[in-house]
C-alpha cells in the first residue's frame, strides 16, 4: 500500500516535471510524431522517443505520467502510465468518461515486476491515435533491459508475482490488445476516464494547458488503496468497471453475454444479479446466476474471478493468477447484498 502511494506521488511529481520540461527549449528527448502518426509498426519502442531514459522510464518532453484511482489488475504488475500530446494540442473532457485525445496522441503503459534495483520491465504497450483510428501495439523488453522490441504475436515469460506465485505471464498479441480495447470493432483506450483520474491531476493538466477543463464527475471512482476497509459497493463496482467492463458492455467483446459491468449500469439484472449465463459453458461451474445476492459462493462472477484455469477464469486475457484483493472486495459486496 505504501508503495502504491509512493508511485502515485511520483506520478504527480513527474507530471509537474514533464509539463515544465515540455516548455523548456532545447530539450534533447523528443517524441517522433512521425512514428506515432504514420502507418506501420515501429520495430523498437525507442523509435517513438517516448522516454528520455527508457530503462529508467524517465519520460521525454510532453510525455506525462498519470495514475488511476482503481487500476486494472494484471498479475500484480506495477504499471507506469503515460500520455503523450503533440505540441499545440490538448485533451478534451467528455463528462466523467474517457478523455478525448487529439490525433497524434499516444498512451504508453509499461508493465514491471520487482522493487528498486530488482525491478524488471516486462513489456510496454502503446496506443497510437492515428488519422484512421487507434492502433494498439505491444513491445517486449529485452533481458538486458536496454530496449523493447515489437511483439506483434505477444509471448510468454516465466516470472514470480508480488504474491509469490510462479506464473507464465502472457504478453498479449496485437489482436488480443484489440480484444479488450474494442468498442463496436474499433480500437479505443480504456483507462483514462475522468472518473478514474484524480481532480488534482486533472487540475494540473488544465493549468498546463494539456486539458480543456476538469469535468463534473472527475475522480469519483474510489481509491483502490482503500480496498481492505472502504465501502464494498463502490469499490466492487469500480473494480468490475475497470477490470471487466471493456468487454462486458454493449459493443464490447463480451456483448453477447448480455452482462454489462460498467460503473454507470444501474439495472441490477444487467450487472448480474439474478442473471442466467448465456455462453459461459463450464465457466458457470455448479451455479445458475452471475450474482446471487447475499451468496458470493453461489455467484458465477466470483467463481470465475477466483479461478486461474483457462476456460473458467475471467478475465480471459491478461490473467495467469488470481487477484485476491479483488476477489475479497467483490465477495464482501455480494455478501452484503440483501
Amino acid at each position: 500500500m505504501r508503495r502504491g502511494l509512493g508511485l502515485f506521488a511520483l506520478a504527480c511529481a513527474t507530471l509537474g516535471l514533464a509539463l515544465t520540461h515540455g516548455a523548456r527549449a532545447g530539450e534533447a528527448a523528443r517524441v517522433s510524431d512521425a512514428a506515432v502518426r504514420e502507418a506501420g509498426f515501429p520495430a523498437k519502442l525507442s523509435d517513438f522517443g517516448f522516454f528520455a531514459d527508457g530503462p529508467r522510464q524517465r519520460p521525454a518532453a510532453r510525455v506525462m505520467p498519470y495514475a488511476l484511482n482503481t487500476p486494472l489488475w494484471s498479475d500484480g504488475a506495477d504499471k507506469l502510465r503515460f500520455i503523450y500530446l503533440p505540441a499545440g494540442t490538448q485533451l478534451a473532457a467528455d463528462g466523467e468518461g474517457l478523455l478525448q485525445f487529439p490525433v497524434g496522441a499516444a498512451i504508453i503503459k509499461t508493465f514491471a515486476f520487482g522493487e528498486g534495483a530488482a525491478r524488471r520491465l516486462i513489456e510496454t504497450r502503446v496506443l497510437l491515435h492515428r488519422t484512421d483510428g487507434w492502433v494498439a501495439l505491444p513491445y517486449r523488453w529485452n533481458a538486458e533491459q536496454t530496449e523493447a522490441t515489437l511483439a506483434l504475436t505477444g509471448g510468454r515469460i516465466d516470472l514470480v508475482t508480488p504474491a509469490g506465485e510462479a506464473i507464465s505471464y502472457a504478453i498479449p498479441n496485437k489482436n488480443q490488445c484489440k480484444t479488450c480495447h474494442s468498442s463496436s470493432n474499433k480500437v479505443v483506450p480504456i483507462g483514462p476516464k475522468a472518473r478514474n483520474l484524480t481532480t488534482a491531476w486533472l487540475g494540473q493538466m488544465v493549468k498546463a494547458g494539456a486539458l480543456d477543463r476538469v469535468p463534473d464527475g472527475a475522480g469519483i471512482l474510489p481509491d483502490w488503496r482503500t480496498h481492505a476497509s472502504g465501502p464494498a459497493a463502490p469499490l466492487a463496482r469500480a473494480y468490475l468497471d475497470v477490470n471487466c467492463a471493456h468487454c462486458h458492455q454493449p459493443g464490447g467483446g463480451a456483448s453477447n453475454s448480455g452482462l454489462d459491468l460498467r460503473w454507470e449500469q444501474d439495472d441490477p439484472q444487467a450487472f448480474g444479479i439474478g442473471k442466467r449465463p448465456v455462453a459461459a459453458g463450464r465457466g458457470a461451474g455448479e451455479y445458475e446466476y452471475s450474482i446471487v445476492a447475499g451468496h458470493p459462493d453461489e455467484s458465477i462472477l466470483l467463481y470465475r474471478m477466483a479461478s486461474a484455469e483457462p476456460g473458467i477464469a475471467m478475465p480471459e486475457l491478461g490473467k495467469a493468477s488470481v487477484d485476491k484483493d479483488g476477489v475479497a472486495v467483490v465477495r464482501r459486496w455480494i455478501a452484503e447484498m440483501k
Binding site: R156, S168, N175, N185, P310, E316, A320
Partner: peptide, 12 residues
C-alpha cells in the same frame, strides 16, 4: 496444453 484465452481460434 492451452494456457490462456477463451477459445482455440477467435475470428473478429
Amino acid at each position: 496444453g492451452q494456457q490462456g484465452a477463451g477459445e482455440g481460434l477467435l475470428v473478429t
